[in-house]
Amino acid sequence: MSGKIVELTVNGRTVEEIVDPMEPLQSVLRNKLGNMATKTGCKQGGCGSCTVLVDGEPIVSCLLPAEAAVGTEITTLEGITPDDGLAPVQEAFRDHFAMQCGYCTPGMIMTAEALLERNPDPSRAEIEDAISGNVCRCTGYDPIVDAIEAASESMNGQGDDGA
């Protein structure tokens, strides 16, 4: 079987890439387009470390064939990171020390982005529910939930101390 040229829109830029039949979007994003934040995790949809946004919805990109993403808007962690500085969710993760090894962090942040987009003021239970498909081995989740809660507050203009 031979590859096929597809057009993908990643972080606002349309690119052409040769993809193999059934090649996962994760593999194309990381290995062909250089979006290194999209981690290679379990490759079975069980860990969430490859989470990206497809038309604003968080999906595990290891389970989506790249061809199926043609015509969608794909957003990776690189796409939400400003040229200068960090996005509010990224800042909150840093300030609340919401990572140790960092492997789950890009997927966690993309899941949080999608949550805060559709629900700008989530409860703690809603945050826990949203990230329940993203596995973290190090933090015990509490610092991650704290960070997403704080990001929601700062994005809604109720930052706790402005520090």
Partner: peptide
Amino acid sequence: GSFGEYSLPGPSEVPDI
């Protein structure tokens, strides 16, 4: 055989610490 089958507590099972 995978993360999906391996039993782990999730964020809502975290106790008050």
